[in-house]
């Protein structure tokens, strides 16, 4: 994928993406004990990028903070409505009155800190497909290796950085 000259695909494009069916099946098979260890840090590192930190799922939760970062709830609150960042508000209702017209695709996040543990929240942000393989929700810290047909600008990158993931987790656990 890195050898592509520009972001436009050529005739080879469609054979590259798998259709939904096999992807769902593959994820079902991989899901419960899925580990990214085999494709660990260093795979997708370039000079200007932070490394990709591995994470492991246990009992549908990621209990260890990504990259050992410490989250900041105030920053997470900002990220949750920032269009080019978390943008949770596009699909989820949040207790943020100044953010109008929240989306209704995902469940409202009011009280999510009561319903889910910190580790469960982290997994759902990092890779919601571990919970529901058919979900529309993007994996915000999925190994970029698994992504197909990514625009050049975003190739090899996760949607959010490890710090941003932890900021969001820190914010969402406060929603009791």
């Amino acid at each position: 994928m890195t050898g592509q000259p520009d972001q436009e695909w050529g005739a080879e494009c469609t054979s590259r993406g798998a259709s939904l069916g096999p992807a769902i099946l593959a994820l079902f098979l991989l899901s419960p004990s899925f580990s990214t260890r085999a494709l660990a840090a260093g795979d997708s590192v370039s000079a200007d990028m932070e490394p990709y930190y591995e994470w492991t799922v246990k009992n549908l939760a990621i209990t260890t903070p990504i990259g050992g970062r410490r989250g900041n709830a105030a920053r997470g609150r900002l990220l949750s409505t920032e269009r080019k960042k978390g943008n949770c508000i596009a699909c989820h209702a949040l207790p943020i009155p100044e953010a109008e017209f929240p989306g209704e695709i995902g469940p409202p996040l009011m009280g999510v800190g009561k319903r889910l543990s910190e580790g469960e929240i982290r997994l759902r942000i990092v890779d919601a497909k571990q919970v529901n393989p058919a979900t529309i929700m993007p994996g915000y810290y999925r190994n970029p290796k698994y992504l197909k047909n990514v625009k050049k600008k975003f190739r090899g990158k996760t949607l959010l950085t490890a710090q941003e993931i932890e900021d969001l987790v820190a914010y969402l656990v406060t929603l009791k």
């Binding site: 993406g17 508000i89 695709i105 529309i136 994996g139 999925r142 698994y146 992504l147 625009k151 975003f154």
Partner: peptide, 27 residues
């Protein structure tokens, strides 16, 4: 098949919005 294939960094297919969430608000 193209319509139902996940693509891009967002890793979504056309079908995700235009089949499964028709009539639902995205913001």
């Amino acid at each position: 098949a193209y319509f139902e294939t996940r693509r891009g960094q967002m890793d979504m297919a056309c079908a995700h919005c235009h089949v499964y969430y028709v009539g639902v608000r995205l913001r």
